[in-house]
Write a protein that binds this DNA or RNA. Structure first.
Lengths: 344, 344
DNA sequence: GTTAGCACTCGTCCTTTTAGAGTGCTAAGA
DNA sequence: TCTTAGCACTCTAAAAGGACGAGTGCTAAC
């Protein structure tokens, strides 16, 4: 529902939001009347703005200041009033060229670069959740004997993740024995997601086969160990210092809280996680965010895929006064590019 | 030379430095007289302080304020006056326990954790340069065929570094051929530092043997490629937000410059690099630092080793008003621990 | 329903005032 | 000759005051 706002109110609300996004100053009635040429006097606008305030779409920092959009105002703007912002072709080109840096084959490199580009283009902080290792599918596992007592376990997933880990082999396994074990495991686990290769499945296999093939025990331990520490997901940040450019962050204490948040990967992960099921972009304005630390911010998230499989989340975090349409345009572009370049 | 300072002047200088480190406020003559019980009146202290100022060890923010140590004052303090600060046994214990987190075998994990602990204990920003890949010695190289056209190159160094890289093999190599190539390379390169395995050596080997063994060409390309991108060294940071706690960083602009610096790894590397040859701790106070951005800071660095081979640098960065003796105690402890835990 | 006019509010900026900390200097004391 | 008490002076930081201006809400006229 487009709610019960008259066309005029919509236009005024829109003008206020747009102006405030641009200037970061409370918007007065005369500004709306003049700059946005509504063909109305400031007095009329004033009345309408008073109405909008009463309805909860606008707020007044103090009695004799102009209006600023409330959280509800932004929400209405985003849902009903915002127009698609087409990037200028120059910008478009700059974006594409900085994204398509040749010679980037490592998945991590691509993501780090994307985070940088995204933050630079939006002038906000960007967050990109790396491919979720535990949701990747098991492809193959290899064990390279390094010397008498140590081996290198290499685990490869369908999303191109390569994990390796040095492990101690208490009892010596011959090349042939290792081969046997490894090919057995590969056969059993192929195609399962790492999530599914849980400790319990491992235990099951172990019980099942322990008597038959004693060496397996060693291998199981290796597999368990190498999975154990790899469950966490990395969040890549870009432009963490961009918040310093925003006038809403001129207070050192706010800055501190924000930067502290950025250092805590598990929290960031949590923030990004709950939106990752959605298919389109999700916009969380102010208090719509769960996390207390970003209740004055807006977080826009989207997901990227490899071969149509949702892999991770891309986010832009900034003050609620954010150029929504521009940011979304850029993110759309970037996600497209990510999808494309990760699928090769 | 202990320079030409009378015993009394030394005591006063020391008192000023210690007090200023603690309070961050200019130190007045009365404070020195009372708190540090010199058995002298404030007037006498005043005269001495005036002398010390003239000599360049103290400075006055403005005419009617107390004195603060100048860069030279800190230098004198560090060189001649500072006492070893023994940590309280509680702190000592806390430090050891947070360092010796079991289950940390990955070199990177150990370093990341150390950076965290160091920054938390000192309340400053910590920088740790990871093991210099290019100074590590070549141990062995393996190639794992993944499928028809791709292989995984695994490179292992004596410092426990494991690099892997997926490479395209344009022409199919049989398992046996690969084996041949790999063992040839292993033999030739064993023990050389990665630095020495330069492109030119590779070229040499290539010229030398190209005619004899055609497959080698492929392998050389692999090796070259996998080395190319791995020359850079990672710098791990801890507690970047700690500078926000320092009163000298209440200016948003300074904060911005500092944080920007932290985001530029090559610069950090450069800052840490030139001290890495020294054997003991190096203290760079204020303008003693090359880098313009940290001319108001002090950087203390030390090196850690694996098996008596210098591997990387540990640093603590903060305002010149830093608790030198405490920081150094903590760093000493930490480096010992690093040396120990990386050598296993 | 719209608009001009006007009194009123309140934050920002600038200046002035005040308080306090600390100095330098002088002159007296050891 | 070195030390110290005393005092006038300096300078900052914080509080207090005042002018300005942007913007409002309300009323009365169109």
């Amino acid at each position: 529902m487009t709610a019960g706002l008259s066309e005029r109110k919509k236009q005024i609300l829109k003008a206020v939001v747009i102006d405030y996004i641009k200037t970061a100053e409370p918007v007065g009635s005369r500004t709306v009347a003049r700059v946005y040429r509504m063909g109305l006097s400031s007095a009329t606008i004033r009345n309408e703005m008073a109405d909008l305030e009463e309805m909860g779409y606008l707020a007044q920092p103090h009695t004799s200041a102009g209006r600023i959009p409330s959280q509800l105002g932004y929400r209405y703007y985003v849902d009903y009033l915002m127009e698609k912002d087409d990037l200028s072709s120059a910008e478009e080109q700059a974006l594409t060229s900085s994204l398509s840096t040749e010679k980037m084959r490592e998945i991590e490199q691509i993501i780090v670069n994307s985070a940088k580009v995204l933050s630079a283009a939006t002038n906000q902080t960007s967050l990109i959740m790396g491919p979720q290792f535990k949701k990747s599918a098991f492809r193959q596992m290899r064990i390279l004997p390094l010397d008498e007592s140590r081996g290198l376990v290499v685990l490869i997933t369908d999303t191109g993740y390569i994990k390796n880990k040095v492990i101690d082999m208490k009892q010596h396994l011959s090349q042939a024995e290792l081969q046997q074990v490894v090919s057995y495991l590969n056969q059993k686990l192929y195609g399962l997601t790492i999530d599914q290769v849980t400790t319990s499945l491992i235990n099951e296999l172990k019980r099942d086969l322990f008597r038959r093939l004693e060496i397996l025990e060693q291998a199981f331990i290796l597999l368990e160990e190498s999975l154990k520490e790899e469950r966490q997901i990395r969040v890549f940040l870009g432009g963490t210092t961009n918040i310093l450019n925003q006038p809403e962050f001129k207070d050192v204490d706010k800055i501190r809280r924000m930067l502290n948040l950025f250092e805590q990967e598990p929290l960031l992960f949590k923030i990004l996680e709950d939106t990752s099921s959605e298919d389109d972009f999700v916009i969380r304005i102010g208090a719509e965010n769960e996390c207390d630390d970003i209740k004055e911010c807006t977080l826009i998230t989207g997901t990227y895929k490899i071969h149509d499989k949702t892999l991770g989340t891309v986010g832009v975090l900034g003050p609620t006064r954010m150029d929504y349409s521009r940011v979304i345009s850029i993110m759309r572009r970037l996600v497209d590019h990510l999808n494309h370049s990760l699928s090769s």
